[in-house]
């Protein structure tokens, strides 16, 4: 009985989300998405989501587990292509180019829209080769000196260089968790992407390493558009300019981070932020 009651509340909450509260467009968009639906086989995971990602902003995507925020994020650089049953409809674009259009190459797209994952996932290679991997496969450097520049520059931007400069040939897995995640960020930066997607980048890290990454995200905003999925509302509040609240596959509310956290318009957002569920 309890289960049924809970289901009913969920269903009614789900039905209650008619359309997104708040302004989902921005004046200077890097990526635009409109009326996106995502299906896994027969199951719909995302319902009619429209959301822009602006230049030089950090947008945080929050919401309870299974609300579709990670799914949405992975659609932005077509990482969902690797799942055979996944189907996307609606429009998504990067600087006006349709992400799922026939002319857009997923390889090129992923070079332009980089991704950092939940669990640090360095390759079974040296620190240097981890960072050099992207430039090498994409042919971004003509010689070793150029490659060295890219690797060192990226490591510096990721705030890792000073910690590893004496052991660039050590395996990437020999680093601590926080360092590994910064290595993964450096690896992403090395390709000079335009957008960086971060899927709960700190969930596997301790508070000190988390603080270091958050600091880094703030610095990276200067050059990149960043979309970050996070479980932690505090993190969203600390690093983002805008926040989008997802619930059961729908985008409930989006707006200035300050506004969302101090004065949410939608009841569900308020419930989530005040910790009634999630």
């Amino acid at each position: 009985m309890v289960d049924k009651a809970l289901n009913d509340t969920h269903q009614s909450a789900f039905d209650a989300i008619k359309e997104t509260v708040g302004e989902f467009t921005v004046a200077d968009p890097k990526m635009r998405t409109k009326n996106v639906d995502v299906f896994y086989g027969d199951k719909q995971a995302i319902f009619d989501v429209s959301l822009d990602i602006g230049n030089n902003e950090v947008i945080a995507m929050i919401g309870p587990s299974g609300c579709g925020k990670s799914t949405f994020l992975r659609c932005l650089n077509r990482m969902n292509d690797t799942i055979p049953t996944c189907r996307v409809s609606g429009s998504m674009s990067l600087e006006g180019e349709d992400l799922y259009g026939p002319n857009l190459d997923p390889v090129l797209l992923r070079a332009r829209v980089g991704m950092v994952f939940q669990k640090p996932n360095p390759f079974a290679k040296s620190i240097y080769d981890n960072v050099a991997y992207g430039p090498r496969i994409h042919g971004l450097s003509n010689n070793r000196a150029e490659l060295d520049d890219i690797v060192i520059g990226s490591l510096k931007k990721a705030g890792l260089y000073d910690e590893v400069k004496d052991r660039l040939e050590a395996p990437g897995t020999s680093l601590s968790g926080g360092q590994q995640q910064r290595l993964c960020i450096a690896r992403t930066i090395a390709v000079s992407p335009e957008v960086i997607l971060m899927d709960e980048p700190c969930s596997a890290l301790d508070p000190i390493a988390t603080a270091r990454i958050e600091e880094l995200i703030d610095e990276l905003r200067e050059n990149y558009a960043i979309a970050i999925v996070t479980h932690s509302m505090q993190q969203a509040a600390r690093v983002s300019q805008r926040t989008a609240y997802f619930h059961l596959g729908k985008l409930v509310e989006v707006g200035e981070t300050n506004h969302i956290f101090t004065n949410p318009s939608h009841e569900l957002t308020e419930n989530y932020i005040t910790g009634r569920f999630g």
Binding site: N77, M79, T82, P106, V107, L108, L109, R110, A111, G114, M115, V116, F117, K119, N121, P122, F123, A124, Y133, G134, I137, H138, C184, R187, T188, V191
Partner: peptide, 17 residues
């Protein structure tokens, strides 16, 4: 681990790469 493959795809590598 699949996460390692994801890391590579996320950088724009092809499957064979």
């Amino acid at each position: 681990p699949q996460s390692m493959r994801d890391g590579s795809y996320g950088l724009g590598a092809t499957k064979s790469e």
